[in-house]
Design a protein around this nucleic acid. Structure first.
Length: 337
DNA sequence: GGGTCCCGCCAAACG
DNA sequence: CGTTTGGCGGGACCC
């Protein structure tokens, strides 16, 4: 659909050629021939995984795939700290980061902001503001990613009910937004659950994605080709007869389409050590436990039986849980709205 | 009848 | 106050 086209033939071809420093939203919107509104969605999720970084109003800088590993690393840590792997319906942990130990560049993750004097502990200035942020696409994206990065044994929690179909509905729509840009960047791939024919996503990680150059990145491969089997990803060219095709068509660089190795990514494939070097040395003197950056950086292939495939349902069930807990938490101390 | 997601209203956030 | 940013969901589209 639209988003896919925008990213693959818009963002990536325009900004991932290694020579773009800053991106202007207006500029992007114009060059891509879409409404501004659409840019925000994309930019938000890209930012949440580290591909972009907000510089200032209307200004973003392109970090490329190089910035991703670091972000994933963070997300993983946060995710583990929270209960993105053990979460049992109730406990969860709002956790609210804290960080300060390594507030790298992720604005979303390291919430910060608010000159809120509250100091220590979670700001908890739970108000309209937080409320809004809570539902931001960016956060949702990070949660989505955390799920892949942290969850083991899959997220099969109570997928029974307790979920307002109403709110769930909206949530799911957002999920589509996120999934689209993520899959466009090839961080995930759309599939379907083994048994249940339900659609699901598989985490691909940052394999084969070169920093800036993008000399060859798997991203381009299936950009406009279906991914062996699932054509769900881009069945576009249908109702999307938008005008932006004029300049988007020039995409002809699909000649290579060798599905590389991604076809069977789950197995015990080796963690493709990308260009982990840099940050490895940078600020990671405190090398964490077992896994080192390499494994983290390159691919987070989950080695659980279901090879990291999460049914949509499970995903938002998770969100709903988080949301519910958040709601009760807020309700307890503040009347809002 | 359900999954997808385009489109854009309109309200927070921010000068 | 105007502008930027972006929740949110109706409803169209394709199964």
């Amino acid at each position: 659909m639209l988003v896919i086209m925008l990213i693959n033939h818009g963002f990536l071809s325009l900004y991932n050629q290694g020579n773009v420093e800053t991106i202007g939203l207006d500029d992007a919107a114009t060059r891509l021939g879409v409404e501004r509104r659409r840019i925000y969605d994309i930019v938000n999720v890209l930012e949440s995984v580290g591909v972009l970084a907000r510089k200032a109003k209307n200004r973003y800088s392109w970090k490329g795939f190089g910035g991703v590993p670091k972000t994933l690393q963070q997300l993983r840590e946060e995710g583990l700290r929270e209960n993105f792997n053990t979460f049992n319906g109730n406990n969860y942990v709002k956790v609210s980061d804290d960080d300060e130990d390594e507030k790298i560049s992720n604005p979303i993750t390291s919430q910060n902001d608010k000159p809120n004097p509250s100091s220590v502990t979670k700001s908890s200035t739970a108000s309209k503001t937080d409320n809004r942020k809570e539902k931001s696409l960016g956060l949702l994206t990070q949660n989505f990613v955390k799920l892949f990065l942290c969850s083991n044994e899959a997220a099969k929690i109570l997928l029974g009910d307790a979920h307002d179909p109403s709110m769930m509905r909206t949530k799911v729509r957002r999920l589509y937004d996120i999934a689209n840009v993520l899959s466009s960047m090839n961080f995930i791939e759309k599939t379907h659950h083994p048994e249940s024919r339900k659609s699901a996503f598989r985490w691909l990680g940052t394999r084969g994605k070169s920093d800036n150059g993008s000399a060859y990145s798997s991203v381009l491969n299936e950009s406009n080709k279906r991914i062996f089997g699932t054509e769900i990803t881009n069945t576009s060219f249908k109702r999307t007869k938008v005008d932006l095709e004029n300049e988007v068509d020039k995409s002809n660089f699909e000649q290579d389409l060798r599905h590389s190795s991604k076809n069977f990514q789950f197995g015990p494939f080796a963690p493709v050590t990308v260009s982990v070097s840099k940050f490895g040395a940078t600020q990671n003197s405190t090398v964490k436990q077992g896994h080192d950056l390499e494994s983290l950086a390159s691919t987070y292939r989950p080695q659980y039986h279901n090879q990291g495939i999460f049914p949509l349902r499970d995903l938002f069930v998770h969100y709903v849980e988080a949301w519910k807990s958040w709601c009760s938490e807020v309700a307890g101390r503040t009347r809002y709205n």
